[in-house]
């Protein structure tokens, strides 16, 4: 019996507030309506906390989304989305980002069976596909600005650059995070803290794909509708 255990018993012999049984307060508790409950595992709590952050991020994106939806007609005599957007590019970007999200999922499976090689390999694929997406987007922005369709030209273009650019910025930061995670997995291995960071990275990357679904539907495809 460890010292901590003895102290614990002396302070709280009946484990008040620690469920019904078990040492270290880990006994089974009764979660109303859910049968046997208990303290949620750290992984569940980490995921929940990060999910709250992601939802707040989604709410922020929804503001840009609303701004775009309202200002899409305000072209001020400049180019409209229909004239600017290239379908092949949107399709390629969508494919890259979806494949990247899938690769991130495979990396998570590899992590769950503690395979260093496959985790790193799939994280690498995730990063390369994400970089391809980012390259196409940067090229698109540059070509718009070269055509004179810069953010200051019209309300539509301001909203477009702000919304799509904000997503692009998230992807950029995600790539930095991804590189950091690959280095951390390499150096520190599959520690609990690293596993939780990988979980959060996965949630982040998949959420960016969800936001992209909204972007390619409303920004790009709907602009092509007569």
């Amino acid at each position: 019996m460890s010292t901590a255990d003895i102290v614990h018993r002396d302070i709280d012999p009946y484990k008040l507030g620690h469920g019904h049984a078990g040492d270290f307060g880990g006994g089974h508790d009764y979660a109303t309506g859910q049968g046997e409950g208990g303290p949620a595992s750290r992984r569940v709590i980490t995921g929940f906390g990060f999910w709250i952050f992601l939802l707040s991020d989604i709410v922020m994106f929804s503001c840009f989304f609303a701004a775009f939806a309202v200002l899409r007609g305000g072209t001020a005599g400049g180019p409209t989305g229909r004239e600017l957007f290239e379908t092949w590019r949107v399709a390629a970007e969508t494919a890259f980002l979806l494949a990247s999200s899938f690769a991130a999922g495979l990396a998570a499976v590899a992590t769950s069976v503690r395979s260093h090689f496959w985790t790193q390999a799939f994280l690498g694929v995730t990063g390369v596909l994400g970089a391809c997406f980012l390259f196409l987007e940067a090229q698109e922005f540059a070509s718009f600005i070269a055509q004179g369709a810069s953010p200051q030209h019209s309300a539509f273009l301001s909203a477009f650059f702000a919304f799509v650019g904000c997503h692009g910025l998230h992807v950029t930061l995600g790539l930095l995070w991804l590189g950091t995670m690959m280095a951390q997995v390499y150096v520190k291995g599959f520690r609990v803290s690293i596993l939780h960071r990988l979980l959060c990275f996965n949630l982040f990357w998949h959420t960016l794909d969800i936001i992209w679904v909204a972007i390619f539907t409303v920004v790009y495809l709907m602009s092509g509708v007569p």
Binding site: S2, A4, D5, G26, P39, S41, R42, I45, S112, V192
Partner: peptide
């Protein structure tokens, strides 16, 4: 005894 409650999960 070396980990806090709920830290480890059974790997899938």
């Amino acid at each position: 005894h070396d980990v806090a409650p709920g830290v480890m999960d059974a790997p899938e």
